[in-house]
Amino acid sequence: MRHLAKFSISVREEDFVLQLVDETGQAYDFATSPEQLDLVIDALDELLSEDDEFDEDDERKIYQKPLG
């Protein structure tokens, strides 16, 4: 499994580019609509607000929402 090293969000005329970079420096670019980016942000906020800390069972959970 790759580990996230950094991410960036850049603005284009009609959408955004979400770039995820792994520990090897390999970058993955995703064009996202404003609505999709909002869904990602909401999903992360919801996931992180469920518990103040993750327990050992958390790594077995998968959190998914359709983006469009």
Rank of each mutant, 00 (worst) to 15 (best):
G25Q: 03
D55R: 13
D52S: 15
V11D: 10
L39Q: 10
G68Q: 12
D51W: 13
F7L: 09
L37K: 02
I41Q: 06
R12S: 08
D42P: 02
E56C: 13
F54K: 15
Q26Y: 03
E59F: 11
T32Y: 05
V17M: 06
Q36E: 07
L47N: 09
D29G: 00
V17F: 01
E46D: 10
F16S: 01
A5W: 08
A27H: 02
L44E: 04
E53R: 11
A43P: 01
L67V: 15
A5S: 13
L47A: 12
S49H: 14
T24Q: 07
L67N: 05
F7W: 15
D42S: 11
S33D: 01
S10K: 11
Q19T: 12
A5G: 08
Q36R: 07
P66C: 12
F7I: 01
E53Y: 13
E14P: 00
S10P: 02
F16H: 08
D52L: 14
Y28T: 00
A43N: 06
A31N: 06
L4Q: 03
I9Q: 00
D58R: 08
L37P: 02
A31D: 09
D57R: 11
E53V: 10
K6G: 06
R12M: 08
D51Y: 14
L18Y: 05
F54E: 15
Q36T: 08
I62Y: 14
I41K: 09
Y28C: 02
S8Y: 00
V40E: 01
V21E: 12
E35I: 03
D15L: 05
Y63F: 12
I9V: 11
D58Y: 10
D22V: 03
R60P: 03
F7V: 04
F54W: 14
D55W: 07
D42I: 04
E13W: 00
F7K: 02
P66Y: 11
S49Y: 06
E46C: 11
S10M: 06
F16I: 04
S10R: 07
Q36A: 12
S33V: 04
G68I: 10
E53I: 07
L39G: 04
S49V: 07
T24L: 06
L18V: 03
H3V: 09
I41N: 04
I62W: 12
L44Q: 03
A43C: 09
S10D: 08
D55T: 15
E59W: 13
L18F: 09
Q36P: 02
L44M: 10
R60T: 11
E23G: 02
T32M: 12
D42K: 10
